Lab assay of single mutants.
Amino acid sequence: NMTTNERRVIVPADPTLWSTDHVRQWLEWAVKEYGLPDVNILLFQNIDGKELCKMTKDDFQRLTPSYNADILLSHLHYLRE
């Protein structure tokens, strides 16, 4: 019986294949993992993996503070390698 913190996010390895639900799961995981403040996951609700991967730093900064944008982008970049 796992707690929420221990729950593994199971999403496709390639972020471009993510559904909007996968994006939400990834964001929820990242918020907990990195202790990100002020991430409004609802702002990302219509973004799927293909859109997420096209987003620039400016795009991320429209949805979340700069600090969060940096961490989310670097993790996304890591996943795409």
Rank of each mutant, 00 (worst) to 15 (best):
K50N: 13
E81I: 06
V23C: 03
L43G: 11
P15C: 03
N40K: 08
A30Y: 02
T16I: 13
L79R: 11
Y34G: 04
T64E: 05
H22D: 11
Y34C: 05
W18F: 00
D48L: 02
W29S: 15
E33R: 11
W29V: 06
L42N: 14
P15D: 00
L27G: 01
P12L: 02
E51V: 09
L73D: 06
D70K: 08
L72A: 01
C53F: 04
Y67E: 13
H77D: 07
L42Y: 11
D59L: 01
T56H: 07
C53P: 00
I41K: 12
N1M: 08
W26P: 00
E33A: 07
H22G: 05
T4H: 06
L72Y: 01
L43H: 13
E51C: 07
L43V: 08
D48Q: 04
I10C: 10
T56F: 02
H77W: 06
E28L: 08
E33Y: 06
Q61R: 10
Y78P: 10
R80H: 14
F60S: 02
K54L: 07
R62W: 04
N68I: 08
P37L: 12
T4A: 07
L17D: 14
T64D: 13
L42A: 12
E51A: 12
R8G: 05
D21M: 08
K50Y: 07
P12D: 10
K32T: 10
P15H: 01
I41G: 08
V31C: 07
T64W: 08
W26G: 00
P12W: 06
G35V: 09
G49F: 01
P37V: 11
K50P: 11
R7W: 09
D21F: 13
D38S: 09
L76I: 13
E33W: 05
A69Q: 02
N40L: 05
W29Q: 15
T56Y: 03
I10K: 15
M55E: 00
Q61C: 10
Q25M: 12
K57A: 13
I41W: 06
A30P: 00
A69F: 04
Q25V: 12
T16L: 14
T4K: 10
D48V: 03
L73S: 09
V23S: 01
N46C: 09
L76S: 02
G49R: 01
R80D: 15
T20R: 09
G35H: 14
D38W: 03
L63F: 08
H22R: 02
E33C: 03
L42T: 10
I71V: 14
D70F: 03
I10N: 15
N1D: 08
N5A: 09
Y34F: 11
N1F: 12
L43Y: 08
S66I: 05
H77L: 08
T20H: 11
L17M: 13
L63D: 01
Q25W: 07
E28C: 10
R80L: 15
R24P: 00
H77T: 07
S74L: 05
L73I: 10
Y78A: 15
Y67M: 06
T20G: 05
N46M: 04
T56E: 09
K54I: 03
I41Q: 07
G35D: 14
L42W: 10
E81K: 09
R24V: 11
R24K: 11
L72R: 01
L27V: 08
N1L: 10
I41L: 10
E6G: 13
N5F: 14
D38H: 09
L43N: 10
V23N: 02
N46V: 02
L79Y: 03
R7T: 12
Y34I: 05
P15W: 02
D14N: 08
V9Q: 15
A69I: 06
E81Q: 12
A30N: 05
L42E: 11
N68V: 12
Y34Q: 04
L36V: 04
Q25G: 08
L72P: 02
R24I: 06
W18A: 01
P15I: 05
E6M: 13
V9D: 15
P65R: 11
I71A: 13
M55D: 01
E81A: 10
L72V: 02
W29T: 14
N68A: 12
L52C: 00
Y34W: 07
L17T: 15
Y67S: 14
R62S: 08
F44W: 08
V11A: 15
D70N: 06
P37C: 12
G49M: 01
T3L: 08
W18I: 00
I41F: 11
L52W: 01
H22F: 01
W29G: 15
L36P: 00
A13W: 07
T64V: 10
E51Y: 10
S74N: 13
M55K: 03
L27M: 06
L36A: 02
L27D: 02
T56L: 04
F44D: 09
D59R: 06
L36D: 03
P15M: 02
W26R: 01
Y34H: 09
R62G: 09
C53V: 10
C53T: 09
D14L: 01
P15N: 00
I10H: 15
H75I: 05
N5T: 08
F44C: 05
P65T: 12
L73H: 09
L76H: 04
R7Q: 12
D48C: 08
D48F: 03
D70Y: 04
N1I: 12
P65Q: 04
L79F: 05
G49T: 00
K57V: 07
N1A: 06
S66L: 04
R8M: 04
L72E: 01
Y78F: 08
I41H: 08
V9T: 14
V31R: 09
E6H: 12
P65W: 07
F44K: 03
M55F: 06
V39M: 09
T64N: 12
T3G: 11
H77R: 13
E51W: 04
Y67R: 11
W18N: 00
T20A: 12
P15V: 04
A30V: 08
